[in-house]
Structure formats: C-alpha cells, structure tokens
Design a binder for these strands. Structure first.
Length: 302
DNA sequence: CGCTTCCAGATCTGGGCACG
DNA sequence: CGTGCCCAGATCTGGAAGCG
C-alpha cells in the first residue's frame, strides 16, 4: 500500500459516516459542508477501494467491507487520541505512569517524603521509583529513559546532551549527640573538631569529596574512629557514642528530627556546592517530563 | 563548484456554491 | 447525494543570487 495516499483525516470521515449514516449529518459533525463531505467520502472510497456506504431507503448504510473495517479504524483513532496526541498534553491528575529518579540515599531521605506528599494530592495515580545507578552508567540511563531525572550532586554529567538546573546550594554541618560531655554548648572550636574522634561516611555520591578535598588542602587531619559506606546507621551511632560526623546540612536537619542529636557549625569556612536536577535532551520537550521537572523545582523553591 | 536561500509563477488541494 | 465550477491558500518547482 502506498502510504503517501493515506490521509488519516479520512478515518474521521469514516467514523462520522458510521455513526450518522448520512453525508449531510456526518459533515455537520466533523465541520464540513455536504459537498465537502461528499468529496471526502469519494476519496475514502478510492483509498479503501470500496463504496463503503450506499444509499438505501433508510439512509447511507455500511457495506460488509465497511463493517469489517469499523473495529480496526476505531482502534486506530483511539490510539491516535489517547497515545499519540495525548503525549504533549500531559494530564497529571489522571496519568498512571512511573517516574524513575536517580538520587543518592540521602536525597531519598531528604526530598522523597515531600515529593510523595505532593504527588498524592496533584497526581494520585503516578508511581515513583528511586534508584542509584553507577556514575558511569547514569548518562546512558538518562538517554534511554531508564532514569527520568537525576537529582543531587553529579559533577560528571557535563555533556551537552544533558541539561541541568540548579535547585539549591548546599553546605555541611557537624552532628554530635545532644548531651555530648565534651561539647556542652552549640559551638564547635577547631580544637574540639581536632580532638574529637570522627565518623566518616564514604558514599557512592561525590559531595563528601568537596569536604575531604578542603581538609586535605588546609592540612587538617582528623582522628577517624569509624569509616562506613552508609548514612543509614549514622544517627544511631552518633547518638550512642562520643563521635562527631560532618554531613550535608539537609541530612543533619533530617536526622535531628528523630534522633537525639545537635547540629554544630563547622569551625572553618566551607564552600557551598550546587544540588541540581539533570535530564537528557531527548525529554526536554516531553510533556510528562516538563511537568515532573517543574514539580521538583517548585518543591525545592519552598 | 556545490550548497543554501530567496522569490515568483505554476500547480495542487480543500472547501463553498449552484444545480441536476 | 453527487458533480462541476470557482476561489483561496498551500505547496511545489526552477532560476537567480549569495556564500564558503
């Protein structure tokens, strides 16, 4: 079949004829005059090589071929309406898709609760999947759509195909247990920072490298009593010990809500770093993707 | 020289009107 | 309802000019 001579608008003509069984009324339904509708029907007959609708005493009745075609044409139009044309008109209130976010566990802890709360009111049928793919695979995951959005500190994502938007700037804070015997007040001196034993979390994310590099640059050497690869155990360990830990401020704030911890400013100036959202050029104009990114931006603005 | 852009004229297409 | 005619707008085509 020569697709150059297929006019999808004619399928609407077919649908209207099937429903109204009158050229005049079908024409009114699709916004055409009777002659224009007649001409469109003639083209449809040519395209499908069948009279399709023939005059009878009780209106324009479908031929057997038209009756055979009716379910298929109805399906095609349904797909066009719901899947092809609907895409650019993303309706969050009824959408049922899943969004996959790549974020380190601290990102999950800090902003997923807020995101879920917002989704439950504006897009109740949308599902979230949080994942952490290795750094070297993240770009491909964004390109293929395996991951919709990366949220966090990903300095490796620098290619022109990857778009990024700053959400907010971040800094660090120290945490110790509330009744720490050697830190009675709410201040931490450099002497205390050096005297105390530290818990250090080496995660797959890179934000801690900024802080480690700063210490290295200034020749500051801490007493490290515990190294771990998870943030999960940090509040329990800090609460039960005399250790001090340096963590991203948002993490410290989140932990202090449920653990008996206090937050202390660092005894030195620490550079801020940007937390961003990253997506691939392919999805830059995608209705669902644009909506999701705007939702994240709004959440962080608050 | 090859490619792109611009422009004017030709052609095609879709729709309305009048009528059989 | 179907067809012929007309009109307006869209699209195509080919030549001229500009550019690297």
């Amino acid at each position: 079949m020569d697709m150059n001579h297929v006019d999808l608008n004619l399928l609407l003509i077919f649908e209207a004829m099937l429903e109204h069984q009158s050229v005049t009324r079908a024409g009114q339904a699709v916004g055409l005059s009777q002659p224009a509708m007649s001409a469109a029907l003639a083209k449809l007959r040519l395209m499908l090589n069948d009279p399709l609708f023939v005059r009878t005493g009780v209106g324009m009745k479908p031929t057997p071929r038209a009756q055979d075609l009716a379910p298929s044409i109805s399906r095609v139009l349904d797909i066009m309406r719901t899947q092809v044309l609907h895409e650019s008109n993303f309706d969050a209130a009824v959408a049922t898709r899943t969004f996959t976010i790549n974020t380190p566990d601290i990102g999950e802890m800090v902003f997923l609760p807020k995101l879920l709360k917002r989704l439950s009111t504006v897009a109740p049928s949308i599902r979230l999947r949080a994942t952490t793919v290795p750094h070297e695979q993240l770009e491909t995951a964004l390109e293929t759509g395996k991951v919709d959005l990366a949220v966090g500190y990903f300095p490796d994502l620098t290619k022109a195909e990857i778009f990024q938007q700053r959400l907010f700037s971040h800094s660090f804070v120290c945490v110790v247990r509330e009744d720490h015997p050697k830190v009675p007040g709410n201040r931490l001196s450099m002497k205390q920072f050096l005297d105390l034993a530290h818990m250090v979390v080496y995660v797959s994310g890179r934000s801690h490298e900024i802080f480690e590099y700063l210490l290295h640059q200034r020749g500051i050497r801490r007493k490290i009593a515990l190294e771990t690869r998870h943030f999960m155990s940090l509040p329990m360990i800090i609460e039960e010990s005399d250790l001090v830990a340096t963590v991203p401020r948002a993490v410290g704030v989140a932990y202090s809500r449920f653990a008996n911890l206090k937050l202390l400013e660092l005894p030195m100036a620490v550079p801020q770093y940007d937390l961003k959202q990253y997506w691939h050029r392919r999805f830059h104009r995608d209705g669902a993707s644009v909506w999701f990114r705007n939702l994240i931006t709004d959440l962080f603005r608050e």
